[in-house]
């Protein structure tokens, strides 16, 4: 390998700093012994203690998790099916239908879903928010899965069919394991998109349904306290764990399939 270009290294460093310094500041100030996010006063765990006793914040985090998990599970199933369909049947309207929710401005999706739910007399609450999130997550999962399928060797599925596997078995034992990294990436993406969505959630949440972004946003008016930093730090930790878990799961899945097909 050639010695790396110092310019390349410098620009990579700048890019990483740009991405991670703001996050690091949020974490650091969650331990700051001052209500102001302005200067370092001293180390404290008070904000985490306060967070632990803040019923509204915990309820909001709980709601966000429930919605995030349901949205991620359902949209991964539907999105994977959509991705496979888009790959296999080259219909022109299909991608349009599946990907439109991504392109439509969020505010439009939010308002139209709200009007739709009201029309159908659906009680606004966790379920309506979860359905709304599934709507916009499907497209993202489908894109990732389709990209993965595009790089897959088609002959493997055909070989499985030649050897007598039913279409379902060929999908279940050959295609699915091969696209698993894409499916997992899609699921994670759906989870993160759901957990931080504000606009669509705002419109589709009913009386008493508060998610973390809604809670934090409504606090901005009275100035954000380090309690928000604390809850953000915990969220980052959760995301980090998820990414590490996914990174550990998908390569093994990939390896085992390569072994079994070779």
């Amino acid at each position: 390998m050639r010695k790396s270009d110092p310019w390349l290294r410098a620009s990579a460093l700048v890019a990483y700093a740009f991405l991670y310094v703001p996050l690091a500041i949020v974490v650091v100030y969650s331990f700051n012994d001052s209500r102001l996010n302005a200067e370092w006063v001293g180390f404290t765990l008070d904000w985490y203690r306060k967070l632990a006793g803040d019923g509204a914040m915990i309820a909001a985090a709980g709601n966000s998790l429930v919605i995030g998990i349901s949205a991620s599970v359902v949209s991964t199933v539907l999105g994977t099916m959509a991705g496979v369909a888009m790959h296999r049947y080259r219909l022109r309207v299909l991608p349009l239908l599946i990907l439109a929710p991504i392109a439509i401005p969020e505010i439009l999706t939010g308002v139209s879903l709200l009007i739709f739910f009201v029309m159908l007399n659906v009680t606004l609450g966790l379920v309506s928010v979860a359905i709304a999130h599934i709507t916009f997550c499907i497209g993202f999962v489908a894109i990732v899965v389709r990209a993965r399928l595009a790089g897959m060797d088609e002959t493997l599925t055909e070989a499985a069919r030649d050897c007598g596997a039913s279409p379902w078995n060929a999908f279940r034992y050959v295609t699915l394991p091969l696209i698993m990294p894409g499916v997992i990436a899609g699921a994670l993406m759906a989870f993160t998109l759901s957990i931080d969505d504000f606009v669509i959630t705002f419109f589709t949440a009913g009386a008493g349904t508060i998610t973390l972004p809604l809670q934090i946003y409504s606090m901005i008016k009275i100035s954000v306290t380090p309690e928000v930093n604390a809850v953000s730090t915990l969220l980052m930790l959760l995301t980090l764990v998820l990414i590490i878990a996914a990174a550990r799961i998908s390569p093994t899945l990939l390896r085992s399939t390569q072994e079994s097909t070779s």
Binding site: A56, V111, L114, I115, V118, M119, T123, L124, F202, F203, A205, G206, A207, G208, T209, I210, L214, Q215, Y217, S218, I220, K221
Partner: peptide, 24 residues
């Protein structure tokens, strides 16, 4: 008492006008 929050009158108006129900 279950609270939900808004940070601008327009937010409240937009939601209620679109038909959101359930607030006392």
């Amino acid at each position: 008492v279950i609270q939900t929050y808004y940070s601008d009158n327009d937010e409240l108006l937009a939601k209620v006008a679109a038909g959101a129900k359930g607030y006392d």
